[in-house]
Write a protein that binds this DNA or RNA. Structure first.
Lengths: 103, 103
DNA sequence: TAAGGAACCTTGCAATGCAAAGTACCTTTA
DNA sequence: TAAAGGTACTTTGCATTGCAAGGTTCCTTA
C-alpha cells in the first residue's frame, strides 16, 4: 500500500541532478527527511540491480572518488509509476483523515 | 520516516465510528486502500496493547460476536501526532517531486 | 608516515505487511 | 441433530525495509 515512498524520493532527486550518496542525504535532509547511509546504499544497489539506475565514478577535489547516479529510461518510467501511486495514496488517505463526520 | 500511515488510517476510521475488523477493511477498500486480515489483526492487537484502543464484544444478527474498537484518550493523542507528521511528510515529499528544475 | 576525514559497503536486528492456515461460533438444511 | 457453510477472529512464517554499528579504502594534511 505505502511501498516505495523513499525510492520515489531518491529517484526524484537523481532525476533532477547527477548526485552521489552524500548529496542525496543532504537533499533529503533539506526537506526534513532523515535517511542514513545504512538505508541509502542498499537501496541504491537494489535500484541499480533492477535496472533503474546507472552510475559512474568521478574524482573528487579532496577524498576518494565518488559514485554518481543517473536514471535509466526504465528508472524514469518507474519514477512515474511511483509518483502516480503516491499521489493516489495521498488522495485516499486524506479522504479518510479529513472527514470529521463523527455525528 | 514514513512510519505509521496505516496505523493512522485505522485510528482515523475508528475515531469516527465504532467498527469491527471487517468494517475497517471495507472502509479502507472504499478509498482504494487494500488491507488484509493478516495485516489488520496484529496491528489492532499492537494498538490495544499500547493503550491506544479498547474493544468490547457485540452480538451479531448472524454469525459469531464481533469485536468493536474504540479509541482511548491516548489513542486520540496518538492519532493527532500521526496526522501531524503525515502532513509534514506529504509536504516534504511534494517539495521533492514537484520541482522540475532539471536545468 | 601517522592521523583523520570522506566515501563506500556490509552485517545483523527489529518492525511491518502479507499469504496461508487454523480456530471458534452461529445458522441453515437435510 | 448432525453436517455444511459462512462469518469472524487469530496465528505462523516469510520477504522486505529501515537502521545502527562496524568495516574498508582512498586521499590529504601535519
Amino acid at each position: 500500500m505505502k511501498k516505495g515512498v523513499l525510492e520515489m524520493c531518491i529517484l526524484a532527486i537523481i532525476s533532477r541532478e547527477e548526485v552521489y550518496a552524500s548529496d542525496i542525504i543532504e537533499r533529503l535532509k533539506k526537506e526534513n527527511l532523515i535517511v542514513v547511509e545504512g538505508t541509502l546504499y542498499p537501496m541504491l544497489s537494489r535500484l541499480k540491480k533492477a535496472g533503474h539506475l546507472d552510475h559512474f565514478w568521478l574524482e573528487s577535489q579532496a577524498g576518494p572518488p565518488r559514485k554518481y547516479y543517473k536514471l535509466t529510461p526504465s528508472g524514469e518510467e518507474f519514477l512515474n509509476q511511483l509518483t502516480e501511486s503516491w499521489n493516489t495514496m495521498v488522495q485516499s488517505v486524506s479522504g479518510l483523515t479529513s472527514k470529521k463526520s463523527k455525528q
